[in-house]
């Protein structure tokens, strides 16, 4: 455990500057909202910058992981020359990104509350709904961001391997794989079989004024995504253990 936590601290140090910059940017979003309020009359505008900022957080973990891997790139042999299994090396970066994401997102939500609460009277009817959308979105951002970070790690590892074998063509192959797998994924998730396998444990959400339609999610869908992500993660760890070179 000491071995891994030292790794974790090292990975934190590698990206902490970016993390603090992110927190500052959240603050800037709050300032922007206050300026917007003065300029426009529609009180719903108050939500827009926060909603956009929250949405961008989907890219948080993949971004962090990529920055972290990029900074290892300059001394790759130091990163790879380590007795711990690759899944632990990768997990350290991912957990770092996840914790930073949660902190950053919570900070953004707190700022949103701080900015919006004094003006509550203006937007009374949409407030509760907006807040419950917020609560729905929060774990989903984390979920999607974690999944995307695994995809990014996989593509990075694949690129590390391919660039040794085929040089600069690696990027073209990566792009090809990305498009192809996106297409297959889309095909798969719209197929009957997918529906049959995943459409269980259904939940419906209603958010009244803000989103008039009901939202339907399935536990099976989450389980499916989880299995895909774990599978991709195992493949990535295998690539780093066996194919990536320092």
């Amino acid at each position: 455990m000491r071995q891994w936590s030292a790794l974790f601290m090292k990975d934190f140090k590698l990206t902490r500057v970016v993390f603090f910059m992110g927190l500052v940017m959240n603050g800037l979003v709050a300032l922007l909202t206050l300026t917007l309020e003065g300029a426009a009359n529609d009180s719903l505008l108050l939500f827009v910058p926060f909603a956009i900022a929250a949405g961008i957080h989907v890219a948080y973990v993949p971004g962090m992981v990529l920055i972290s891997l990029k900074s290892e790139g300059s001394y790759m042999s130091v990163w790879l020359h380590n007795p711990q299994a690759a899944f632990k090396l990768l997990l350290s970066k991912m957990v770092n990104g996840l914790i930073m994401l949660v902190v950053s997102l919570a900070w953004l939500y707190a700022l949103a509350r701080l900015v919006i609460t004094p003006r509550l009277s203006l937007i009374e009817p949409s407030w509760t709904d907006a807040w419950s959308v917020g609560w729905f979105i929060f774990p989903h951002i984390i979920w999607i961001s974690a999944g995307l970070s695994v995809l990014v790690m996989f593509l990075w590892a694949l690129h590390q391997y391919l660039k040794l074998r085929i040089g600069r063509w690696s990027w073209a192959v990566i792009a090809g794989i990305l498009i192809l797998s996106g297409w297959i994924y889309a095909l798969l998730t719209t197929s009957k079989l997918y529906g049959f396998v995943t459409e269980w444990g259904g939940m419906t959400y209603k958010f009244g004024v803000i989103l008039p339609d009901t939202l339907q999610t399935y536990t099976g869908g989450y389980v499916f995504d989880f299995i895909m992500i774990v599978g991709l993660f195992i493949l990535t760890a295998w690539l780093v253990d066996n194919k990536v070179e320092g």
């Binding site: 090292k10 140090k13 300059s74 001394y75 042999s77 130091v78 020359h81």
Partner: peptide, 12 residues
């Protein structure tokens, strides 16, 4: 193993 590039984590 000690690599030629010789750079360790410069933040340390």
């Amino acid at each position: 193993y000690s690599s030629e590039s010789g750079i360790y984590y410069p933040i340390f």
